[in-house]
Amino acid sequence: MNINATLIGQTIAFIVFVWFCMKFVWPPIINAIEERQKKIADGLNAGERAQKDLEKAQQEIAEQLKEAKQQAAEIIEQSKKRGAKIVEEETQRGHEEREKIVAAGHEEVAAERNRVREELRKQVAVLAVSGAQKIIEREIDKDAHSDIVEKLVAEL
């Protein structure tokens, strides 16, 4: 337990150890630690930034979606309106067409009627004349009374 030359030896050992530690051990380790700390800090920052970006993007997406929905609704509304209009127009046109056709039919029918009536009239005249002839054959001369018969026919 005496103080002796061991003291000197231990001092030298200590100095050498400290020197070695200062030169070869401490700097690389502390550098690595600090570098890693910086890396982690950067990573955390980046993560935070990404989170913010994501939130912003999500907000944007929500906005755009809303807008798109609104536009879609507008488009649907417009097309509905237009469809209704087209239906109305078509209905209108159909009505007009029908009326036209009906009118044409009427006219045709009227023309036909007139024609038939004319023919009937002629036939009735012929019948009347032939009837009258038959009557008159018994009583009067055909030639002498033809003017009267004509007048009759015209009156039919």
Binding site: N4, Q10, A13, P28, I29, A32
Partner: peptide
């Protein structure tokens, strides 16, 4: 000279520096 004192202390000091130096050599971020 206390040979045991010197021997054990130097052995332990070398053990310390050797094991830490191994890390220092390979240390990266």
């Amino acid at each position: 000279v206390n040979v045991d004192t010197i021997f054990w202390s130097v052995l332990l000091g070398v053990l310390f520096l050797w094991s830490f130096r191994r890390v220092a050599k390979k240390s990266s971020a």
